[in-house]
């Protein structure tokens, strides 16, 4: 066991993956000498050399496009996109090339590429640095999306993502980078695409991923003092979604609140609400409710606290669910 912040758990996971397989390479802006703007790759260039920890030219499409070529040549690139809002210059390479090539190759090759994306708000940063673009990519067949909320998951999920032979987008909760947690260095606790119960409860299921899980746990603590028991689910995998634990939980509680930082319109929360309504209609005592960012551009940092769902906004939805 080791007590690590999430950022350093990812570093340790990357180091383990690179040690295990010399085809694993890191690519990105400022990831070498500097160790990344969040220091997630700190120390890795010194250990593995500049050929395996590449400071790339400043071009996101170039990073993903050349990673595709490296993967076609047998390497396993792990790309860092510096901030969520900077992924869009690479959107074409990710959606028209990376996501489709496995299908186009008809079994003659695959694309073992991981794209690390520090995502989400709560850090008071300038525009394009606090966004949650997951839904754009979850909509695209051929990609897999995951997001850890704990240090232990960060350590294991990055390694599992690198071991996957399919492209995996790895959304890192940047506001929780320095939140510490116990990391078990021996065996992974869960498979990559599993949703887990983060806290058991009885009355309402609340579900989210990444940094939102911490908000949900806080809400559960507050609810408990009022006699309401929330079951908190950590989604972990955004594509594919592991519905069995969600349906099992809803069959127990009869109520589901889905929370996310992203705007709610055409979001992962919308998708889960629709599927749970289809598959667990007779278990539900209330409609599935969504708690989301508003459908506006991510606001200037001084307003982010009003934009991002907090424990009170989650509990407001819990109250509405219980009122049915």
């Amino acid at each position: 066991m080791s007590n690590l912040p999430i950022a350093k758990a990812i570093t340790a996971g990357l180091e383990a993956a690179m040690t295990k397989d010399d085809r694993v390479l890191l690519m990105g802006e400022d990831i070498g000498q500097l160790g990344g703007v969040f220091r997630v790759t700190e120390g890795l260039k010194a250990k593995f050399g500049a050929s395996r920890v590449m400071d790339t030219p400043l071009a996101e499409s170039g990073i993903i496009g050349t990673a595709i070529g490296l993967a076609l040549n047998g390497y396993r690139p792990v790309c860092e996109i510096q901030f969520d809002g900077f992924i869009f210059p690479a959107f074409n390479q990710i959606t028209t090339q990376l996501a489709k090539l496995t299908n186009r190759l008809e079994g003659a090759g695959n694309l073992p590429i991981v794209i690390r994306v520090p995502y989400g708000g709560h850090i008071g940063a300038v525009e394009h640095h606090q966004e949650s673009p997951e839904a754009y990519f979850a909509h695209t067949p051929g990609l897999k999306l995951v997001s850890p909320s704990t240090a232990n998951d960060a350590y294991w999920m990055i390694q599992q993502a690198i071991e996957s032979n399919d492209p995996v987008m790895f959304f890192e909760p940047k506001s929780k980078y320095w939140t510490k947690g116990e990391v078990s260095l021996n065996t992974p606790t869960h498979q990559l695409h599993k949703t887990v119960v983060a806290r058991e409860g009885e009355h309402v299921t609340v579900l989210g991923h990444g940094a939102m899980v911490h908000v949900l746990l806080q809400a559960a603590g507050l609810a408990q003092s009022e006699g309401i028991s929330l079951e908190v689910l950590d989604l972990r995998s955004l594509s594919p979604i592991d519905y069995l634990p969600i349906l099992r939980s809803v069959s127990k509680t009869g109520r589901l609140v889905v929370a996310q930082e992203a705007p709610g319109f055409v979001s992962i929360g919308s998708e889960i609400a629709a599927t749970v309504t289809e598959q667990a209609f007779y278990s539900l005592d209330a409609p599935v409710l969504r708690v989301s960012g508003f459908d506006v551009p991510f606001p200037p940092a001084k307003l982010e606290k009003l934009y991002l769902p907090d424990a009170d906004r989650v509990l407001e939805a819990v109250d509405r669910a219980l009122a049915f």
Binding site: S61, G62, I64, G65, T66, A67, I68, G69, L70, A71, L72, N73, G74, Y75, Q93, Q97
Partner: peptide, 10 residues
């Protein structure tokens, strides 16, 4: 063109 460059980097 980027895939070609990446392949050549490999």
């Amino acid at each position: 063109a980027l895939h070609a460059t990446g392949y050549a980097m490999g």
